[in-house]
């Protein structure tokens, strides 16, 4: 028996599992910067799925525009929210 593996399917499954997990973490994470990090990972894995769909241009634009815009989002997020939200938990000052 010859065992053949469809590597594109494997990659697609890996990308989609990581993407869904990161998307869930984005909306459930309480720390703003971590949420931005998970959002970044979500967008990068979406671009990986675009590459599997043979849409390289869209994939690169996805990284350049969407993943590149995450810092903007983060900047506004930091400016417009309370700092207390980001330090909760481990920091001694917050207690």
């Amino acid at each position: 028996m010859v065992l053949t593996i469809d590597w594109e399917l494997v990659l697609f499954l890996v990308f989609s599992v990581v993407e869904v997990a990161c998307a869930i973490l984005t909306v459930t994470s309480k720390r703003l910067v971590r949420a931005a990090f998970w959002l970044f990972l979500t967008l990068v894995t979406i671009s990986g799925i675009y590459i599997l769909l043979r849409a390289e241009f869209v994939a690169l634009i996805q990284i350049l525009v969407y993943a590149g815009a995450v810092p903007v989002l983060l900047l506004f997020g930091i400016m417009l929210t309370r700092r207390k939200m980001l330090e909760e938990g481990e920091t001694p000052e917050a207690k």
């Binding site: 970044f40 690169l60 990284i63 900047l75």
Partner: peptide, 18 residues
């Protein structure tokens, strides 16, 4: 799309810096 790829790779830098 090499030029676009290089620009995309360089644009991840600011995020890691922040």
């Amino acid at each position: 799309l090499g030029v676009l790829f290089i620009l995309a790779a360089l644009s991840i830098g600011p995020f890691s810096i922040i």
